[in-house]
Amino acid sequence: MGGGNHLALSSTGAVKGDTLIDVGSAPSIYQLLSSCEAFEKIIATWFTQSELHQLQKWQNKEADAFDWSSILKHVCGLEGNKATPQEKEEKLRGKIEKVLHCDVSRSNPLAPIDAPKADCVTAVVCLEAACRNFETYGLALRHLSHLLKPNGHLLLAGDLGANYYEVGAEKVFSLPVSETFLREALPGNGYRIVELATFGKPDDADPNASDYEGFYFAHAQKKV
C-alpha cells in the first residue's frame, strides 16, 4: 500500500541525489524500482540474514530467485513504459551497490559499516514492525537521521492503527501509529515535515489480513 506513494514521489523527481539507503528492503525490490531512476547508488538493508540472502539471490540472477516480472511490468506501466521490465530490472541491479545488515535500535543502524551520508533514507512498512513501542520508534527516527546528510530526505510509508498483520498463518506484530503521533515524532526527533498524507482503508481490503485503519506517506527532511 505505502509503496505506491513512494513510487509516485520518486518518479516525479521531487527527491533525487547520489545515494539512497533503503531500510528494510529485503527480500523485496518493489520500493526501489522507481528510486533507481532518481539515485545513482542504492544501499539495500534488512535485519535478518535469510531475507538478505533472498535479495542477493535475485541480484546474482540465481535460478531459484523470486520472479518479480509482474511487479516490474506494473511499475513500468505506472512510469509510462519508458523502459521495458527487463531494462528496469537490470538498471536496478546495477544501482544496488551494497546489501547490508541493519538494526534501527543502534545509533548507527548499519554498524559496523560506516556508510557515507545519504541524500535520502526510505523505510516502507518497516518501523512499525521493528519498534515495540512509541519511544523506540522515536529513537529509530533519530538513528536514521545519522545516516543522512544535512537537509537529507526521509521517506516513510506504512499502516495506521495496525496491531498486527498476517504472514501466512502467523500474526506479526505492528505498532499502531497514528497521524497525530507522526506529526509529533518527526519534528521531535530531528526532522522538518515536508508532506504527511494519510489514506483510509480500501473498501475491498481483506478484513483478516490486518486490523489497520489506513496508511500514511511521510516526506521529511533532516534539520541542519
Rank of each mutant, 00 (worst) to 15 (best):
E89A: 15
L72Y: 03
E89I: 10
D204E: 12
L156G: 05
R192C: 13
K149T: 01
G94N: 13
P187S: 06
K95I: 04
A205G: 06
L100W: 03
Q49I: 09
D103N: 15
R106K: 14
G190H: 08
S25D: 02
F173I: 09
G3K: 08
C36I: 11
Y165K: 05
K117S: 10
S69Q: 15
L154Q: 01
A169P: 06
T180D: 13
T48P: 02
E51F: 13
F215R: 02
L110N: 04
H6Y: 05
V15I: 15
V23N: 05
G152A: 03
A65G: 10
R192M: 13
L127F: 12
A8G: 01
L196P: 03
L141G: 02
R183P: 05
S174T: 11
E37S: 12
C120H: 09
D114V: 14
E37R: 13
G214F: 09
N81D: 13
G190M: 06
P150V: 04
A26N: 00
K16P: 08
L144M: 15
A185G: 07
A65F: 09
A44W: 03
N108K: 01
Q54L: 15
R192N: 15
H74S: 13
T84M: 08
L52F: 01
V75S: 09
R132A: 13
A123V: 08
G138I: 08
A157W: 00
D203Y: 10
K98P: 00
H146R: 15
F215G: 04
F181A: 06
V121R: 01
E37F: 14
K91I: 13
T45V: 01
E90Q: 15
E62I: 06
R132P: 06
R106I: 04
E40P: 03
K91Y: 08
L139Q: 14
D67L: 09
G77E: 06
A111T: 10
F47L: 13
I193G: 01
K171D: 04
L7A: 14
H74Y: 12
E195H: 14
R106E: 07
E128T: 06
S25H: 02
G77N: 11
A38Q: 11
C120R: 04
W68N: 07
N208L: 12
E62M: 13
A169D: 14
T198H: 05
S105W: 04
G17Q: 07
S69C: 11
L155S: 00
E87Q: 15
A220N: 01
V104Q: 02
A162T: 02
L155H: 00
L9R: 14
D18L: 13
H101A: 11
E62S: 07
E90R: 15
I42F: 03
H74K: 15
S10I: 11
G13P: 05
K16L: 08
M1E: 09
P85D: 07
S11G: 09
R192I: 13
G188P: 07
P187F: 01
V125E: 10
G77R: 12
G24I: 05
Y212T: 02
Y165Q: 05
Y137N: 02
I96N: 04
L154W: 06
T198Y: 05
G188F: 09
K95H: 08
R106Q: 12
E40A: 15
S105D: 10
H219W: 14
E51P: 08
L32I: 10
D206P: 02
G3A: 14
